[in-house]
Lab assay of single mutants.
Amino acid sequence: MEVRTIKVFTTVDNINLHTQVVDMSMTYGQQFGPTYLDGADVTKIKPHNSHEGKTFYVLPNDDTLRVEAFEYYHTTDPSFLGRYMSALNHTKKWKYPQVNGLTSIKWADNNCYLATALLTLQQIELKFNPPALQDAYYRARAGEAANFCALILAYCNKTVGELGDVRETMSYLFQHANLDSCKRVLNVVCKTCGQQQTTLKGVEAVMYMGTLSYEQFKKGVQIPCTCGKQATKYLVQQESPFVMMSAPPAQYELKHGTFTCASEYTGNYQCGHYKHITSKETLYCIDGALLTKSSEYKGPITDVFYKENSYTTTIK
């Protein structure tokens, strides 16, 4: 009895394709271990004539594949690729409408935090270190965002349907971005203890939790000093293409032309909904596939993004 075979390709990165001759009487799992086709788990399936010449994702289970996976995804987590594939199996079914010149995501599976993050990423200057993220990001900007969303979920250790947080998501993504040249110098002034300067680099240099107003941050924000008295913390120097200011959701007025974009969060910790506000020729609110415009805006804002380049204080 002759062994019926077909020729397929296996890959971990969709760049390096490895030619395989597979036995049609055995499952993919018996031949390769966990195997995925377009995100779908085909591990328990036997090869079919229609699979001839198709590319299958496999887990990096030998040295060659491990090197290829690390170079593309910059992670050695053995569960990463499987999590990416199972997320992709959902995100490829989502709709990605162009809204006001940006790629958004039609609401499904509690994905409003991903839509808000995706919209924000198209408006701030950011370059990702893992080629996987950078490639998928370019495709997302062009309207094909399924891979990018699935990668975000995998890097953030999230599953489809789980509630997510924009600030946490951005923080994970910033860790995989090139923020080497970003720098922030802060000064804390206390009447009792004097003053202390701190220099922050990388992710810490672009994120701040405690106030939404970048102007206020430049002037000074009140913080408790270690001595128990009130101290003032203010920005001395900022070198970065953008800054992200966050605070627990509270009524906040966004003035046209003073910011790049913002995240609105309605609801409580267990259950809520994100919308995205962007400042173009007027203010726009993007909620999944829905767009509304207004000249002014007041609502429960939790993150505001500002364009920056270089700032030095005039406070002496």
Score class of each variant (00 low, 15 high):
105 I>R: 00
271 C>G: 14
112 C>E: 15
64 T>H: 08
16 N>L: 13
207 M>E: 07
184 R>E: 03
63 D>P: 14
121 L>D: 00
174 F>A: 04
12 V>P: 06
113 Y>N: 03
21 V>Y: 15
248 P>Q: 14
43 T>I: 09
154 A>K: 01
59 L>D: 15
308 E>H: 07
145 A>E: 02
42 V>R: 02
65 L>A: 10
264 E>R: 06
12 V>G: 07
301 I>R: 06
129 N>R: 13
102 L>I: 06
50 S>H: 15
265 Y>N: 06
269 Y>D: 15
254 L>S: 02
272 G>Y: 08
5 T>P: 09
239 E>G: 03
253 E>M: 12
173 L>Q: 00
214 Y>M: 11
69 A>G: 00
214 Y>K: 05
264 E>K: 08
54 K>A: 11
115 A>F: 03
303 D>N: 12
198 T>P: 05
192 T>Y: 07
247 A>Q: 09
188 V>G: 14
227 C>G: 02
41 D>P: 07
195 Q>E: 15
212 L>C: 04
121 L>G: 03
167 R>M: 05
73 Y>L: 01
166 V>E: 01
20 Q>D: 06
198 T>L: 13
311 Y>R: 08
87 A>C: 09
205 A>Q: 03
30 Q>W: 07
191 K>V: 09
274 Y>S: 03
69 A>M: 11
112 C>S: 14
228 G>R: 05
150 A>M: 01
272 G>N: 07
284 Y>S: 08
13 D>Y: 00
150 A>N: 01
307 K>L: 12
114 L>K: 00
82 G>S: 13
24 M>V: 13
147 N>T: 09
258 T>C: 15
314 T>P: 08
276 H>A: 02
107 W>K: 14
67 V>I: 07
191 K>R: 13
113 Y>Q: 03
258 T>N: 13
40 A>N: 14
133 L>Y: 02
96 Y>Q: 04
236 V>M: 08
120 T>Y: 04
19 T>G: 11
142 A>D: 14
107 W>N: 15
64 T>A: 13
79 S>R: 14
7 K>I: 00
130 P>T: 14
110 N>K: 08
181 S>C: 11
206 V>L: 06
271 C>Q: 15
291 L>H: 07
156 C>L: 12
7 K>S: 12
245 M>F: 11
3 V>M: 15
271 C>L: 07
206 V>E: 03
18 H>R: 12
145 A>D: 04
110 N>H: 02
133 L>R: 00
313 T>P: 08
224 P>K: 14
84 Y>V: 02
91 T>L: 03
209 M>H: 15
105 I>C: 01
107 W>L: 12
110 N>P: 05
249 P>F: 03
248 P>V: 11
196 Q>R: 12
137 Y>H: 03
237 Q>E: 12
218 K>G: 03
215 E>Y: 05
252 Y>H: 13
127 K>P: 05
87 A>F: 02
270 Q>I: 11
3 V>C: 15
86 S>Q: 12
62 D>G: 09
45 I>S: 13
193 C>E: 08
101 G>T: 03
53 G>L: 14
165 D>S: 14
272 G>H: 11
4 R>V: 14
30 Q>C: 08
177 A>M: 07
301 I>H: 06
202 G>N: 04
117 A>F: 09
315 I>E: 13
26 M>R: 15
272 G>M: 07
84 Y>D: 00
301 I>M: 08
117 A>Y: 00
28 Y>S: 04
108 A>G: 00
180 D>L: 09
108 A>D: 05
195 Q>M: 15
316 K>A: 15
197 Q>Y: 08
37 L>G: 05
124 I>L: 12
300 P>Y: 13
55 T>A: 11
130 P>M: 01
3 V>Y: 11
96 Y>S: 03
302 T>V: 11
274 Y>H: 10
173 L>G: 01
15 I>N: 15
283 L>W: 06
104 S>E: 00
228 G>F: 01
94 W>P: 01
268 N>R: 11
5 T>K: 15
160 V>Q: 00
117 A>R: 02
75 T>V: 15
258 T>R: 10
12 V>L: 06
70 F>Q: 09
143 G>D: 01
